[in-house]
């Protein structure tokens, strides 16, 4: 019944340095979120955060077929931002991602810092930044609110996936020219599902309890930090990712210089990697093709796997 989302990075896929740095970054963010949630927001947020986290966890079980067996379903960062604002949303997503890792081994323990960074911080900050921007541009008419919900959902997934693929590339797990197009490509699709579900949820809430979506002015003041983080993450990741995927060696070289890679034997960075695709000599073209091949392979396998899973569930 569930479709796999390759967003939770398991243990072993990230180098210790990348894991460590992202642990520190995530802890700082969560610490600030706790301070903000404890001070600014009244204490009734405690059950709110806990129960909403459980609801988003449960809501991740919801899916629907998009096309050709891929299914759309929920990560929830955007929905959390739209319902409770950015700082509580960081806590909500932190709870979801942590419990998934600790209890269900969905995502590693050592890589939890990175997964928190991608889903609870990048996801939330981007969703907040995008939704605020859209609201500013289009106002709060019904269609604008729905568009905002979709955009916040799509961007939160897509940018978070770019972050995840850069982490994989930095760790030497998968070359940037494979990781970025593959992760980015599949999540551009998954993001549509996220966007549509977020939109559907917001549409229902708008018609039954619209006051939930009207964010209070004072909430925005304390959140400029998240807004700016969202802006920076969106812009930087959107620029770095294509650069890195066209120069995969560059990234590995940087990573090696920074000491991120501990790979004794692999001394082959000077060899320009390219796919043996008969007849393609042009390097740039080969890189793009490489990405495309990666995406196609991933998609095909995901389709196969979901197909198997769906028919298995159907038998029950």
């Amino acid at each position: 019944m569930k479709a796999p989302v390759p967003m939770h990075i398991p243990d072993g896929f990230l180098s210790v340095a990348v894991s460590g740095i992202l642990w520190v970054v995530s802890l700082i963010f969560i610490f600030i979120a706790l301070k903000k949630a404890g001070k600014e927001i009244d204490e009734s947020r405690l059950p709110l955060v806990g129960v909403l986290a459980a609801a988003i966890f449960a809501g991740q079980m919801l899916n629907f077929a998009v096309a050709g067996g891929t299914s759309g379903h929920l990560l929830g960062a955007a929905l959390a931002v739209l319902l409770v604002g950015p700082w509580p949303a960081v806590l909500v997503m932190t709870s979801v991602v942590t419990v998934q890792a600790l209890v269900f081994q969905d995502g590693g323990v050592l890589t939890l810092g990175a997964n928190l960074f991608n889903m609870a911080i990048v996801g939330v900050a981007v969703a907040y930044f995008v939704s605020d921007l859209f609201k500013h541009w289009f106002g709060d008419k019904r269609w604008a609110t729905l568009l905002t919900a979709f955009a916040a959902g799509w961007f939160s997934i897509f940018i978070a996936a770019l972050a995840a693929s850069l982490e994989l590339a930095f760790s030497g797990t998968s070359p940037a020219n494979i990781a970025i197009p593959a992760m980015g490509g599949i999540h551009a699709l998954i993001g549509i599902g996220e966007g549509l579900i977020t939109l559907g949820a917001v549409s229902l809430i708008m018609s039954s309890k619209p006051q939930l979506l009207e964010k209070k002015a004072e909430e925005k003041v304390g959140s400029s930090f998240v807004w700016i983080s969202g802006l920076v993450l969106t812009v930087v990741l959107l620029i770095i990712s294509p650069l890195a995927s066209s120069k995969p060696d560059g990234l590995e070289w940087v990573a090696e210089k920074l000491g991120f890679l501990i790979m004794a034997q692999d001394a082959s960075y000077h060899i320009i990697p390219d796919y043996v695709l008969p007849g393609i000599q042009n390097e740039a073209l080969a890189t793009i093709m490489a990405g495309a091949v990666g995406v196609v392979i991933v998609m095909a396998l995901v389709l196969l796997l979901t197909r198997r899973k769906t028919s298995q569930t159907a038998k029950h």
């Binding site: 919801l62 629907f64 599902g193 549509l196 579900i197 559907g200 949820a201």
Partner: peptide, 8 residues
């Protein structure tokens, strides 16, 4: 998507 979103 609307139905699923509504459930969410």
């Amino acid at each position: 998507a609307q139905v699923t979103g509504g459930m969410a």
